[in-house]
Design a protein around this nucleic acid. Structure first.
Length: 643
RNA sequence: GCCGCCGUAGCUCAGCGGAAGAGCGGGGGAUUUGUAAUCCCCAGGUCGUGGGUUCAAGUCCCACCGGCGGCUCCA
C-alpha cells in the first residue's frame, strides 16, 4: 500500500494511506471543526471532501462558505437538490444545466409547460425534505460510452448534447439518494449541510441562451448557511427594490417613461432635468479645460454616411428604419462618430494639429428589442457623453491612458469608489478591418492597463465592430455593478472613411480614433445615481437643497428674506408655507429627500437664523444667521477635479 | 422577439360573473400650527384597446398594445 504525503495549511506534514479523502484528513486534523468546512483545495484544485486523492504529495486547504469556490459548490449542490425534487415531482422533466450563480443558483428543465407558483412551493417543500434526510453525495467516473448509455436510457437528451461536446475519456457523475446527474463538480459532502434555502422565481430561458433553441423553464433559488444570512440576502433584495430608479424617478419627479411617447423613450421632468443639466455643465467645463472642443450634430443623417461607415452593414440590427423624403434617404443616428469624423474632415489636418478632441452630448437612437428595455438603463433614445479623439498611432497609448485616468477620477466625483475594468476584444464574426490591426489595438489597451496597474477581466469577442474597448463598471452601495465609461480604440473607421492627416513626409496617413464616454449615457448614469443614493442625492446635486418651513403666517416674510439671503449664496431654497402642522411639512420634505430643512418661528424671527434639520436626522438645533450662512455654503459645495 | 405574470382614478392598489372602491395626490373649507402624516367636504374612471361567450363581463375566452421578471453567470 503506497502512501500520500499530506502538507497541511499550518505547514505540518502527515503521512496518509493512498486514496485518503480530505474529510478523513480533516477529521484527524480538526475533529471539532469538521462541520465548518465544505470543500477542500488539493494542490490548488477545488476538491470534494469525499473524493479520494491519488497524488503522492498533496498541499491541502479546507474551504468554508466564505471562500468563493466552496460557496459555489454549496449552491451547486443545492441546485442538484432542486433537480432531484423536480425529477421526483415531474418524472418527465428533462435536465439541462444547473450552475451556481452570483447570489444563488438556477436549474433549467424541459417539462413542456411553465412552473406555477404552487409547483415552486411543492418543489421547495420537497427540497427541504431532501436536505433533512441528509443524503451523502457520491462521485462516480464513467467512460464516455457508459455515460452515454446511462443518459440515453434516462432520456436526458440535453445532457447527451453536453456529453457529446466533452473531450475527456471519462466523465463524472454525482449522485445523492436516487438522483444522479452528469456533473463536473465539485460538491459538498451531503445534502444535510445545506442550511436555509429558498426558491425565488421561475422564467423561460432558451437552451443555451439561443432563441433558435427550445425554451426551457428555469427555476432560480438561493441558499445560505443560516436562516439569518438568507433573510439578510432577501432584505437586500427588498432594499434594491425600494431603490428602484423607475419608482423613485416617478416619486421624486425626476423622469418618466410614458406610453404615449413610446417604449424606451424618456421624459426628463424638471427635477431630473435640473440634475442632468448640472452634470452636463460640469462635463462641458471639464472638457473645455482638457483640450476638448464642443460640437453639435443632427439626429438624422443621409444613409450614404452610414453605408460608408459600415453601420448599415454591421449595425443595422440596432438602427431604426429608414425615412425618405424628396427622394433622399435618412437614418436616425445610432452613434455620433461618423458625424464627428465629417467635422474632422472639413479641414486638412497636419500631424502638428493632432490630437484633436471633439466632444458632444450627442443623442442617439438605437433599436433595442422590447423585452430588453428596462427603465433608464436600457432605452431606445439616449444621450452619450461622447467624444472622439483623433490622433496619430504614436499618440494613441498616451491619449488612451489619459482618458482611462480621467474616467476613473470623474466617476469618483459622484461618490463611486469601486470599479471593475473589462477589456473587450474583437468580435468573432461582425468586425471591420484586419487581424493585424486588431492585434495592435488590443495590445495598446493592455499596455495602458498594465502601466496603470489596473486589474481587469477579459471579455473575449465583446468589442465594437470597429475596435476593441475598455469598459469601466462601477459598484454601487449595494455592490451591484453597472457599466458606465467605455473607451474604444478604433483604427478601422478612419481607414474606411479615409480620415487622414498629413505627416511630416507630406503624405496622407490614417488617424487612430478613440471613441469614449465617461458617464456612458446621461440616462443610465441618472439611473445609477438614483439607485446608489436611493433618491437622497448629495446636497450639491439635489434639485432643492433646502426648504424653509415658517411655523405660522406671521413668519412668512422672515422666511422670504432668509430664502433670498441663502439664494444669494448660491443655494437652491424653497419655502413650504402651507397651513399644515410642522410635522406634516417635515414629513413631506423628508419624502421629497430635501437635504436641509430650516424651521423658522417666533424665536428665529426674534434672534435671526433658523432651526436646522438634516435629511434623515433629528433636529440639529438653532443656528444664528452668520453660522447658518457659512454652514450652508459648506454643505452645497460642488466637488471638483484637481487640474 | 420568445416564455410567464400583470394593465381598475394623476400615483399605489382592493374588487375577479350580478348597481365601480380605498389611501395618497388634486380642488374647496376649517385649524395659525415648534421637528416624520390636522380635520371635514368635493371632483376625478368608455376598469389598456378591439372582438367574442353570457340574460348579465374590470371579472370568462381570443387578438393587439403597454408594463414587469427571465432568456449561458455553460456538465
Amino acid at each position: 500500500m503506497s502512501k500520500v504525503r499530506v502538507i497541511l495549511p499550518d505547514g505540518s506534514v502527515w503521512e496518509a494511506e493512498k486514496n485518503v479523502t480530505p474529510l478523513q484528513i480533516l477529521e484527524r486534523w480538526k475533529p471539532t471543526e469538521v462541520e465548518r468546512f465544505l470543500l477542500a483545495e488539493v494542490n490548488g484544485q477545488p476538491w470534494d471532501l469525499f473524493r479520494p486523492v491519488a497524488d503522492e504529495e498533496i498541499h491541502i486547504r479546507f474551504l468554508t462558505f466564505d471562500d468563493p469556490p466552496a460557496r459555489d459548490a454549496y449552491r451547486h449542490t443545492t441546485a442538484h437538490v432542486l433537480a432531484q425534487a423536480v425529477k421526483e415531482l415531474f418524472p418527465n422533466a428533462k435536465l439541462a444545466i444547473g450552475p451556481p450563480i452570483e447570489n444563488g443558483f438556477y436549474y433549467d428543465f424541459d417539462i413542456g409547460r411553465p412552473f406555477t407558483e404552487e409547483d415552486l412551493q411543492k418543489i421547495e417543500q420537497r427540497m427541504k425534505e431532501i436536505v433533512a434526510a441528509d443524503y451523502r453525495l457520491k462521485r462516480l467516473e464513467l467512460p464516455k460510452k457508459e455515460a452515454e448509455a446511462l443518459l440515453r436510457q434516462a432520456g436526458e437528451t440535453y445532457k447527451l448534447e453536453i456529453l457529446a461536446e466533452l473531450d475527456e475519456e471519462t466523465v463524472s457523475f454525482y449522485q445523492q439518494d436516487g438522483f444522479i446527474d452528469l456533473c463536473r463538480g465539485p460538491h459538498i459532502p451531503s445534502t444535510g449541510r445545506i442550511g436555509a434555502l429558498k426558491l425565488l422565481n421561475s422564467a423561460g430561458a432558451y437552451w443555451r441562451g439561443d432563441e433558435r433553441n427550445p425554451m426551457l423553464q428555469r427555476i432560480y433559488g438561493t441558499c445560505f448557511p443560516t436562516a439569518e444570512a438568507l433573510q439578510e440576502h432577501l432584505t437586500k433584495l427588498e432594499e434594491a427594490q425600494r431603490r428602484d430608479h423607475r419608482r423613485l424617478g416617478r416619486e421624486l419627479g425626476l423622469f418618466i417613461i410614458e406610453e404615449t411617447i413610446g417604449s424606451g423613450l424618456v421624459l426628463w421632468l424638471p427635477k431630473g432635468g435640473f440634475i442632468r443639466n448640472l452634470l452636463e455643465e460640469m462635463w462641458r467645463a471639464e472638457h473645455l479645460k482638457r483640450g476638448y472642443q464642443i460640437v453639435y450634430t443632427p439626429h438624422i443623417a443621409r444613409t450614404e454616411l452610414w453605408d460608408r461607415s459600415g453601420h448599415t452593414q454591421l449595425y443595422s440590427d440596432f438602427m431604426f428604419p429608414m425615412m425618405e423624403l424628396e427622394s433622399q434617404k435618412y437614418l436616425l443616428k445610432p452613434m455620433n462618430c461618423p458625424l464627428h469624423i465629417t467635422i474632422f474632415k472639413t479641414e486638412t489636418r497636419s500631424y502638428r494639429d493632432l490630437p484633436i478632441r471633439l466632444c458632444e452630448l450627442g443623442t442617439v437612437y438605437r433599436y433595442e428589442r422590447s423585452g430588453a428595455l428596462h427603465g433608464l438603463t436600457r432605452v431606445r433614445g439616449m444621450t452619450c457623453d461622447d467624444a472622439h479623439i483623433f490622433c496619430r498611432m504614436d499618440q494613441a497609448e498616451e491619449e488612451f491612458a489619459a482618458v482611462v485616468q480621467l474616467a476613473l477620477r470623474w466617476l469618483r466625483l459622484f461618490g463611486f469608489d469601486e470599479f471593475t475594468v473589462k477589456i473587450a476584444t474583437r468580435p468573432t464574426d461582425k468586425f471591420a478591418g484586419t487581424l493585424e490591426i486588431w492585434d495592435q489595438a488590443e495590445s495598446i489597451i493592455r499596455s495602458v492597463v498594465d502601466n496603470l496597474n489596473l486589474d481587469y477581466e477579459l471579455d473575449v469577442g465583446g468589442g465594437a465592430f470597429y475596435g476593441p474597448k475598455l469598459d469601466i463598471f462601477l459598484s454601487d452601495c449595494l455592490g451591484r455593478k453597472w457599466q458606465c465609461s467605455t473607451i474604444q480604440l478604433d483604427p478601422n473607421l478612419p481607414l474606411r472613411l479615409e480620415v487622414n492627416y498629413v505627416g511630416q513626409d507630406n503624405r496622407d496617413h490614417p488617424v487612430v480614433m478613440i471613441h469614449r464616454a465617461l458617464f456612458g449615457t446621461m440616462e443610465r448614469f441618472m439611473a445609477i445615481l438614483t439607485e446608489h443614493y436611493a433618491g437622497a442625492f448629495p446636497t450639491w446635486m439635489a434639485p432643492v437643497q433646502a426648504i424653509i418651513l415658517p411655523i405660522a403666517d406671521r413668519h412668512l416674510s422672515y422666511a422670504q428674506s432668509l430664502q433670498n439671503g441663502l439664494k444669494e449664496l448660491g443655494a437652491r431654497v424653497e419655502i413650504n408655507s402651507k397651513r399644515e402642522p410642522l410635522s406634516g411639512r417635515i414629513f413631506d420634505a423628508e419624502a421629497a429627500k430635501i437635504p436641509i430643512i430650516l424651521v423658522v418661528g417666533d424665536r428665529e424671527v426674534r434672534d435671526g437664523g433658523a432651526s436646522v434639520r438634516l435629511r434623515g436626522k433629528k433636529d440639529l438645533g438653532y443656528m444664528p444667521l452668520t453660522v447658518l450662512q457659512q454652514w450652508i455654503q459648506e454643505q452645497i459645495k460642488t466637488p471638483k477635479l484637481d487640474p
